[in-house]
Design a protein around this nucleic acid. Structure first.
Length: 283
DNA sequence: CACCATGTTCCTTG
DNA sequence: CCAAGGAACATGGT
């Protein structure tokens, strides 16, 4: 569950539930999630700390940890990889199949589950240093997007997915934003003119904030059995009702009609990833 | 069995 | 050193 909107919705879910709690102990059934720490060292790092703040930067979750009354003393970053999930549950539940890490918070447990194990935790903010600007921040202007895109010869879609250029867009929302802006994904970045960049800026903010809005409204079951609709996790009962058919306008819709012009959506591969677009609407 | 999957890092090539 | 592309990572779904 990994692009900016899902992480944002997850952070909003976790923050009020985690902030103020103290980590009593940690269990690490899958040590890949904490490497290069050993489970022992990871435990020493977090045990006894209080969770002061839960925030998001790009696709990373940031947990500021403190001991005692002072300001936070250390940082814990989390990344969901492709299949990571986080949720709280009452202590002593049955061990789910792909649990990587369990934090004992006293009355509840904070669980990190990750089938593919591409996600994990980090003990410093180094991963954040390479990140480009936050596309949803108030100060992020159209000129800022244009400046970070630059005059690269790289095609615009992989350019948008480069986390050091803009933080938070992944394979889904890069395709979605380009469709919204009417720009073909395989255009050279330097050929995208000023006016198009302004459109792209608006499109990025629109598709991301709309996805956050949908996720917030969807009454997600973070700890549920993990029915996924390609984005958020839904509990069983509500899955059919709440997974809107029109969640995406191009992503995973190859051969189906474009919502704008009716022509079939195309799929092709760019830098090893599927790209979806409408050849009529996107130039 | 083959292919596909919301991501990042490391390696190679130019 | 930089830019860009591809493989690897580990597992499950179709």
């Amino acid at each position: 569950m990994p692009e900016l909107p899902e992480v944002e919705v997850l952070v909003r879910h976790l923050a009020p539930r985690l902030e103020g709690r103290t980590i009593r102990s940690v269990a690490v059934p899958r040590r890949r999630a904490i490497e290069p720490w050993t489970p022992r060292k990871f435990g020493a790092y977090v045990r006894g700390t209080r969770i002061m703040a839960v925030t998001r930067r790009g696709k990373y979750l940031r947990f500021d940890l403190g001991r005692g009354a002072g300001p936070s003393e250390c940082v814990l970053l989390g990344h969901l990889g492709m299949t990571g999930r986080m949720y709280l549950r009452p202590v002593g539940g049955a061990l789910a199949p792909h649990v990587s890490v369990v934090f004992d918070l006293g009355e509840v447990e904070w669980v990190f589950e990750d089938a593919r194990q591409f996600g994990g935790f980090f003990g410093n903010d180094r991963p954040l240093r390479h990140l480009g600007p936050e596309p949803l921040s108030e100060g992020f202007a159209a000129e800022d997007l244009s400046a970070c895109l630059g005059a690269s010869r790289q095609p615009i879609k992989p350019r948008l997915m480069d986390q050091s250029v803009v933080a938070g867009l992944g394979n889904i929302y890069a395709s979605e934003a380009l469709h919204d802006a009417g720009i073909a994904p395989d255009r050279e970045t330097r050929s995208v003119d000023r006016e198009e960049r302004v459109r792209l800026w608006g499109a990025i903010r629109e598709v991301l904030s709309e996805a956050v809005r949908l996720g917030e409204a969807a009454s997600l079951d973070f700890a549920g059995d993990g029915i996924r609709d390609g984005l958020f996790y839904y509990g069983r009962a509500s899955a059919a009702a709440e997974a809107p058919e029109e969640r995406f306008r191009v992503y995973d819709r190859a051969g189906r009609p474009c919502y704008r012009c009716g022509r079939p959506i195309e799929r092709f591969v760019q830098t090893g990833r599927s790209t979806f677009c409408c050849r009529a609407c996107q130039r």
